[in-house]
Amino acid sequence: MMTQLFIIIMGVILVNNYVLAQFLGICPFLGVSKKLNSAVGMSLAVTFVMVLSTVATWPIQTFLLDRFNIGYMQTVVFILVIAALVQLVELALKKYMPPLYRSLGVYLPLITTNCCVLGVTVNNIDSSYNFIESIANSFGAGIGFLLAMVLFAGIRGKMENSDIPEVLKGVPSVLIAASILSVSFMGFSGVVEGIFG
């Protein structure tokens, strides 16, 4: 059981990285990766919301949507639930944990409807994970997001000090760097299964 969970977590961090291999959550990946601090803050917020949404959506899928055979309403219901949940968490944090609320800042509402959060919850169902496995998968997805953000923040830091041709300055160079990073992650495919399988 532990090995199974470990494979899921490592697999989703390295092989099926949500940003670099599945191309979900590209918006925060490009938008918030300028500074390491905000990149880490954003990633932790994403991890937190991913795990929380899984805790909420998995039972809804299993006990509500599947029971009434309306699995096709998944997307609508999940978005609804995740949005409401993040709002609720925001209210709770504001009241009971102001320091955490301030450090997450604007990122928390930003990721309310982020596709990587929705993607993780939907993927959990599609991969027919059980509850524990789903949580492990969401946690791993969040850590994978963190890894991608931190790596990319480092790359962007280097890029700012380098002499880039005028045509590639700004977004083009960032996109090229992102694609190279993504290609480099392709090298991990099969690694986890090879080690644990």
Partner: peptide, 10 residues
């Protein structure tokens, strides 16, 4: 059913 469920969830 789906309309009801989504509405109730909301």
């Amino acid at each position: 059913t789906p309309i009801l469920i989504v509405c109730v969830t909301g």
